[in-house]
């Protein structure tokens, strides 16, 4: 798939996730727009996880720690064939398994998440098992930057370093916003580089909306033999829609009709210029 294809896909994903959030009248708009390019590259260029190999264990793994951005995950999983996209018309409805956070009732999802600060420990377990069984699969997770306040993340990183889990890849959706506002005003986590390094990780930075850079960095793990990998992906919360970008109020705001139409217009404009 070319960079151009990925770009076009991402616009399509953005339009769809907005559509289904609007339809469900619920969802995490800002965080989904922030991470959808990362998911695009992961599923189309890195993971090699398919509906055919998903039920086995001998494959790469992706577990989304920031489960609230499930709408981005749903549209990508539908696109790569895990379920028909029309299933998403039932998002958040009575008796639909497409709820507002990832669950294993949905094909393609390996672990339930939604309470922040859980998935990294789970991933350490999976990565350990991979090593014990002598396989070469990688375990990817996506963390929010506000989520880093949960101490469990740091416990997990300690263990990952202790067991030299260089098959573990924590991607940070570094959009600098959480619900209340800027992360730096809520709970100062900087300097992140030094913290991750001190916890034994090998750290790389990437522009989380640059498809080539993402493809390169995600395909070059392990960065250092014997060290867990941390990728600080510089992202924009709400990326792609001018009035959603960098605005904390859009964490779980659902677009009105007018906002939705304007968002689609803006995204269509971007497609024309690709």
């Amino acid at each position: 798939m070319t960079t151009r294809d990925l770009k076009t896909k991402s616009i399509d994903y953005r339009k769809k996730l907005l559509k289904y959030i609007k339809h469900a009248n619920a969802g995490h708009t800002g965080g989904s727009l922030s991470c959808v390019d990362i998911l695009n590259v992961l599923y189309n260029h890195v993971l090699g996880v398919t509906p055919e190999n998903f039920s086995g264990r001998d494959r790469n793994h992706y577990i989304q720690s920031k489960g609230h951005s499930v709408e981005a995950l749903y549209v990508v999983l539908a696109d790569v064939g895990f379920f028909p996209e029309s299933d998403l018309e039932t998002l958040c409805q009575y008796q639909s398994h497409y709820v507002g956070h990832p669950t294993r009732k949905v094909n393609g999802i390996e672990h339930n998440s939604g309470a922040l600060g859980h998935a990294l420990s789970y991933c350490v377990g999976v990565a350990l098992a991979e090593k014990k069984d002598g396989r070469n699969n990688n375990v990817f997770t996506l963390l929010g930057d506000g989520e880093l306040a949960e101490g469990s993340n740091w416990e997990a990183l300690l263990t990952a370093s202790h067991y030299k889990l260089d098959n573990l890849v924590a991607i940070l959706d570094y959009n600098k916003l959480q619900i209340t506002g800027w992360v730096k005003d809520v709970c100062a986590t900087e300097p992140l580089d030094e913290k991750f390094t001190a916890f034994g990780a090998s750290v790389r930075h990437v522009d989380g909306h640059d498809f080539e850079a993402l493809t390169e960095v995600l395909n070059s793990v392990p960065f250092e033999k014997g060290k867990p990998n941390v990728i600080i992906a510089h992202t924009i919360k709400g990326k792609g829609v001018s009035f959603i970008e960098n605005n904390y109020k859009w964490h779980h705001h659902v677009p009105t009709d007018a906002e939705f139409e304007q968002a689609i217009r803006e995204l269509d404009q971007v497609v024309k210029n690709i």
């Binding site: 600060g117 619900i179 209340t180 809520v186």
Partner: peptide, 30 residues
């Protein structure tokens, strides 16, 4: 609060009594 000021409808409280609110980030044990 733990990034729960908005969910708890406590934004007005925070504005009126900035010295009487403590924000700990997303860290409920803390």
């Amino acid at each position: 609060t733990s990034d729960s000021r908005g969910s708890g409808k406590l934004t007005p409280f925070g504005q009126q009594f900035p010295d009487q609110i403590v924000e700990v980030g997303i860290a409920e044990q803390n």
